[in-house]
Amino acid sequence: MTDVTKTFTLRRRTRGRLRRERTTLDAVDGVSFTVPRGEFLGYLGPNGAGKSTTIKMLTGILTPTSGRVRVAGLDPSRSRTALARRIGVVFGQRTTLWWDLPLKDSLTLVRRLYRVEETAYRARLAELTALLELEPFLATPVRQLSLGQRMRGDLAAALLHGPELLVLDEPTIGLDVVSKATVRGFLARLNAERGTTILLTTHDLGDIERLCRRVLIIDHGRTAFDGDLAALRRTAGADRQLVVELAAPGPPVELDGVPVTDVEGPRQTLRLPDGANAASVVAALAARYEIRDIALRETGIEEIIARLYRGDR
């Protein structure tokens, strides 16, 4: 994707006028990025940032106003049928399965849509059934499946034809802890063992921390960050804190270059400077003070991304 824009024309009726006023909205404004084969990319942004518009251009649903989009070497808007055979798409709030059919029958129809050869279909279905634990509900109508079961069924449907790219939009939304763990474990294995390229959009930042090596953040239609999680922490000014519980209450501990930010009885919080070795700081504290307990805390990914949205550095 190179210097891509997508502009929508909006018509609004103004008070006291018969004609509607026409305005334009730049949903995506000059976004460029490349996803190498085999990468697991987290694509983030607040509501209205342009994530869904980007996904729709990548899958051929929308045509960019300007710029160049290529997926698997194809122009998505001009080669939708050819592209559909090379990618899989899962939207967490919509299903591609047939509501009144048993899950297995839905998957059989998907196989026919993609014209997957019978032997390949049986092998993939058996593998996906084992990895996603589908066996107990293959005969259950889709409308009777739990949200977690349906999501696993949608993942199987998206992968039956062996796509090289998997696009996921909120795949764990509404899932319980066990179902999330199952889906996350499957996606991690799919990427690591099969080399499937995965593009993930989500508001569940636990997905990002556990799955993605690279994060791309879009805000107001423009790229706000592109890099790994360590670089994101540095960009947003994330800090590390050392929480120390002393044997007894006392004045703030004194250690060169390590300020105390909070004292509450015997518990004191120290801010570690950038590049500081936590083990060395702990050793220096233990040599001078009697310590009962100690914990290292890092700024959570939610706070880091919130800072980036606010423009904090």
Rank of each mutant, 00 (worst) to 15 (best):
A192N: 12
A230C: 01
G237T: 08
D228P: 07
H203I: 05
A224S: 12
R234N: 01
G185V: 04
G221C: 10
G206S: 12
H220A: 15
H220K: 15
Q241T: 11
D226P: 11
A238T: 02
R233A: 10
E209T: 15
R240V: 09
Q241P: 00
E193P: 07
G237D: 01
A230K: 06
T202K: 02
A224W: 01
R234L: 05
T235D: 01
L200D: 14
G185S: 04
D219A: 13
T196P: 07
V243T: 09
R222I: 03
A236F: 01
D228I: 01
I198H: 01
R234I: 00
D239N: 02
D228H: 04
I198W: 08
C212L: 08
F225G: 14
A236H: 04
D239P: 00
I217A: 13
E209C: 06
T202A: 02
L187I: 11
G221S: 03
G206R: 02
A224R: 15
A224Q: 08
R233D: 09
L187P: 10
G195D: 12
G227S: 08
A188Y: 01
E209M: 04
T197W: 14
T201R: 04
E209K: 03
I217F: 08
I198K: 06
G195T: 06
T223H: 00
D226Y: 09
V244D: 07
G206Q: 10
I208P: 02
G221A: 08
E193C: 09
G185T: 03
E209L: 08
L216D: 07
G206E: 15
A238W: 02
A231K: 00
R234G: 02
Q241D: 06
V215T: 15
L187W: 00
L187V: 09
E209V: 11
L205C: 05
G237I: 07
L187E: 06
R233K: 12
N191T: 13
E193F: 05
T197D: 13
G237K: 08
T201W: 04
R194Q: 15
A231I: 04
L200G: 10
T235C: 01
I218F: 05
L199S: 10
D228Q: 01
R214I: 11
H220T: 01
T201V: 05
R214S: 14
D239G: 14
L242G: 01
D226M: 07
R210T: 14
R214N: 14
E193R: 15
G227L: 06
D204T: 01
G227E: 15
G206A: 13
T202N: 03
R234V: 07
I218N: 07
L242V: 10
G185M: 06
D219Y: 07
D204W: 03
D204I: 08
E209A: 14
I218C: 12
A231L: 09
G227F: 10
D226C: 04
